[in-house]
């Protein structure tokens, strides 16, 4: 039997550029594209673990609501003159769920010598919407944001547990674009770990920083108070994940929808905080 002959003109085939063998990538460190090093993170966890367990005695409620795989945007209330909540949340989730958390914070960190580099190696990422999108949508990671921004830790002790405005709802828009849920986390204890008694706005303007706090820790320990937290008892409660019924990757989302969702999350978080405070018998235990 004769083989079937193909008919038609010959079209010159475009030669594939190169065989796509894996490229040699002679890396000498484990620093990833965000600047995070698992090695340094591990070291940080080992150093921080006693503080987490024995100083703050952190306790979680409903931790199982945090997804064990896929991207999710964690949002929490932010407090303490030098916020003690971010490292505690990152540490808690990484040790309990053994998956990395990227802590998103103001660009300001990137400009600080030594601190900025350490922060980045320990899992900090500048809070740029594009960074959040890439982490959440393309890499399916957990990203932690504080929608209050610097207004949260910048409040004085008399305003404790009063949530500030949630920015312009940018975090909701990112979650919509990335197609990931928002998981709110209420934190109790950070406020009392380093309470701001009053602020020095003139000095803040001079230094070009959002606020310069005078904390109770400073009055008690002097300059050491910059590092020494009070041993307030830390409690975290994870709220139900908020999923958005919108398609991801849209050019824009309804602004009113975003603002409503952001406000709903803020109200939920605020109510949860009040509930946790109602049940709290002591700041320290």
């Amino acid at each position: 039997m004769e083989p079937i002959r193909r008919q038609g003109a010959l079209v010159p085939l475009r030669r594939p550029e190169e065989p796509s063998a894996p490229l040699s990538d002679p890396r000498l460190s484990d620093v990833d594209e965000w600047g995070r090093s698992e090695h340094i993170r591990e070291l940080a966890r080992r150093l921080y673990d006693p503080i987490y367990r024995h100083w703050f005695r952190a306790e979680w409620e409903d931790l199982e609501k945090i997804p064990t795989e896929g991207g999710a945007l964690l949002v929490a209330n932010h407090a303490g003159a030098i916020p003690s909540d971010a490292p505690a949340i990152m540490h808690g989730i990484e040790t309990e769920l053994s998956r990395p958390v990227y802590g998103m914070a103001d660009h300001m960190f990137k400009g600080m010598p030594v601190v900025g580099t350490l922060w980045s190696r320990a899992g900090g990422v500048a809070a740029h919407p594009e960074n959040a999108y890439r982490l959440l949508r393309e890499q399916g990671q957990l990203a932690l944001v504080f929608p209050e921004g610097t207004k949260g830790p910048g409040k004085t002790y008399s305003e404790r547990y009063q949530l500030r405005r949630f920015g312009r709802g940018g975090f909701v828009e990112i979650a919509m674009r990335a197609g990931v849920p928002i998981v709110p986390i209420a934190v109790v204890g950070a406020e009392e770990s380093m309470p701001t008694l009053f602020k020095v706005p003139g000095l803040a303007r001079m230094l070009g920083v959002p606020y310069v706090p005078i904390t109770a820790n400073m009055l008690m320990f002097g300059p050491l108070g910059l590092l020494a937290y009070f041993p307030a008892k830390f409690r975290f409660r994870v709220l139900d994940p908020v999923r958005f019924d919108v398609p991801p990757d849209q050019e824009r989302y309804s602004k009113s929808r975003i603002m409503d969702a952001a406000e709903d999350i803020r109200v939920d978080l605020q109510e949860t905080l009040y509930d946790m405070l109602r049940q709290r018998r002591s700041v320290w235990f």
Partner: peptide, 9 residues
Amino acid sequence: SMQDPAWFR
């Protein structure tokens, strides 16, 4: 600059 994203498209 400080305000840059990690990756520019």
